[in-house]
Design a protein around this nucleic acid. Structure first.
Lengths: 203, 203
DNA sequence: AAATATAGTATCAGTTCGATATATCGAACG
DNA sequence: CGTTCGATATATCGAACTGATACTATATTT
């Protein structure tokens, strides 16, 4: 799951580990704070599989011009300049490879295991990389999951044996699922009206 | 986290592993489906620490009256009868110990690490085992976390660089946090009016 | 000058997940 | 009548994720 998130961020531009954490918090809205104990092993894993590659680690003490003329280093330098608030300390900047891009699309399109809320939000946040039909498929599968889950929590909320706290939790869970469902329906109608617009234009 | 959930269920009555999963789904509203790869190790762990003990495993083939006269077995029998849809296969029924009850209250009252949504919902579902002041403390800490998180996701939602999908995820995340916040405030006012009622009665 | 905050990489032990294996029973089906 | 199917039930494995901790360097506050 983290793999998709990291690859998704790297599709835009290069990142280093620490930055991936903040981006995950600020741009993907899925995790409040991912553990570094997840990020660094994930980066190592992705590098092992050839999905990402590390570009030269820059130290802030090193003068920008002192680094040589290799194209990789130049590129790395560019990405560092693009980063606001330059490197205080040696960073390990990662770049997605061609294989990584392919793997990313494969993972993102894979219909398997999307049940939980985080997983779905992540895919949705990266939905611009999906085709319209894959997006609709993703939304419809999520919708079915939510409908089933809503029945579960509603049944739980009506359980007479629950004390007021437990029932309150179930009722709140139901409201959360309802909110999710309304969101999905909204996204689905947007997708469909976009498709119609496209169809009309093509006519 | 699972430890609290399991002990919380066992505070009410004895359970076996499979049943714990369904109860977790239907009564605590926190997990859709917990993995058995979490439940069985957790039960083994709790048994190792002396927080729970296994009572005799019953086979459905054995006649109910054939089991002996030991008090433990009688109690186990009672709990099995209470279970709707008796055992098809040998089960391992677990009971909470005195040490387990103490440990449960300690864990539930512990103010450390309650940041995430699941963790909080779990504690709230078991809040009847907390004192009113601990409940209020729990709610207030959660409230502060949510206010901070809301600022994060709202900032993210206003980020101009995000595409429409990513922004939609952030906006939805904000709505989710707002819903949580409204819930907390509702619970807090209930707690406070209950305290006032109590104070009035005591006068 | 010292404490504190922020940026940064890294690892460890313990927990949780998803997949898989195994077995029993009731019900549906041909 | 046998057989497949779905629910009930226990158990384990590898991989993933978390929270804690350790370490270093710079910036900001006190």
């Amino acid at each position: 799951m983290l793999d998709i998130a990291i690859l998704g961020l790297l599709m835009d531009r290069d990142h280093h580990g620490y930055e991936i954490r903040t981006q995950l918090r600020d741009r993907l809205g899925v995790w409040a704070n991912v553990s570094f104990g997840s990020i660094y092993p994930a980066l190592a894993r992705l590098e092992r599989f050839g999905c990402v590659e590390a570009v030269v680690a820059e130290s802030s003490r090193v003068s920008p011009l002192s680094t040589g003329s290799l194209s990789g280093e130049r590129a790395s330098l560019r990405s560092l300049r693009a980063t606001p608030g330059l490197g205080r300390r040696g960073r390990k900047v990662y770049r997605i490879t061609e294989k990584g891009r392919e793997e990313f699309v494969t993972l993102l399109s894979d219909p398997a295991t999307l049940d939980d809320s985080k997983n779905f939000s992540l895919r949705m946040a990266l939905a611009k990389y999906l085709t319209p039909s894959l997006r609709v498929g993703l939304l419809e599968r999520r919708r079915a999951d939510l409908v089933a889950r809503l029945a579960e929590v509603r049944a739980g909320a009506h359980n007479e044996q629950l004390d007021s706290y437990a029932r309150s939790v179930m009722e709140h869970a139901a409201k959360g699922v309802e909110l999710d469902l309304a969101w999905i329906d909204n996204l689905l109608s947007t997708e469909r009206s976009n498709q119609q617009t496209f169809a009309r234009e093509a006519k």
